[in-house]
Amino acid sequence: MDMLRQFGQDMLGPAVFMVAATLAKIVCITLPLMLCVAYLTLLERKIIGWMQTRLGPNRVGPFGLFQPLADGLKLLLKEIVIPSGADKWVFLAAPVFSIAPALAAWAVVPFDDGVVLADINAGLLYLMAITSVGVYGVVLAGWSSNSRYAFLGGMRSAAQLISYEIAMGLSLVVVLMVSNSLNLGDIVNAQGKGLFAGMGVSFLSWNWLPLFPVFVVYMVSIVAETNRAPFDMAEGESEIIGFHLEYSGLAFSLFYVAEYASMILCSAIASILFLGGWLSPLGCFPDGFHWLAAKIFIVLVSFLWIRATFPRYRYDQVMRLGWKVFIPVCIAWMGVVGIWMMSPWSVWK
């Protein structure tokens, strides 16, 4: 590795090499991520099928394994219809606005101890800032379509996203209070110590247990934040129509890729903040990336499971849950945790 670095620096010069190395790292993160997105769609259709005692896609390739490729090819070949009177450039930029944050946020996600693209101190802040940009994609898509339905759908989704972002942000505040850092790697490492970790059952010292109400709020908020059922008012294909009403072809599929990419992202963040990231659940196993992958997978499957189980919320119920339940609970638990940390029974010393 060092030899390669030396060789590259001699060949390209230090500045160019740094750019090239960063680009290579970005590709190393993004390509597998896109593959995961493709196969997450297959997993979703399979799991929902099984839960409805169907088989799910099984025609394209063995067990339907080439189904995502066929879907991608189909969407690639479809026409992108731009409605007359639509603001063309905004219309085409909106899907990009929605997918870019879901990819950019991976820059600060640590995959293992020290394995992170940008090890910045304000990682959590960056995450909250960059994921908030995603709402622009929704608003601009609804607005630029020149359609009342898309516009109303965009407004509705924006209101939902912003409401749940507050609850999510407040729950993240509690996490950063107890871990005393905004760096995601430090947040994970802070979960690896404590009374239970010393006894070898470190999964009990992860943040989900002492911060349980916040954990519940966060898990529900990320379902709402990624526009997944039962909070998929943005899509609402059967009764209300969402912001991507006028989109077709590749532009439409970008919204879908963005939805699934942010699902994976939110699962990764939940695993890192509450489920101990790459730490192993029992002291007798070594830590490593595979634990993070397993945790992300479990959270993702629970997303799909929830979608297969619950009917869609009514819009006013979504708003009530966000503003009247989650935000007060987060603020209350913030106070409780603050007092707990100052008390002699603090578990975060």
Partner: peptide, 20 residues
């Protein structure tokens, strides 16, 4: 909610009725 999830969870392993 976990009650509901348990129902769908059981059906995940139920025999499938699809005819290929």
């Amino acid at each position: 909610l976990f009650g509901g999830l348990a129902v769908t969870g059981r059906y995940l392993f139920a025999p499938k009725t699809t005819v290929r």
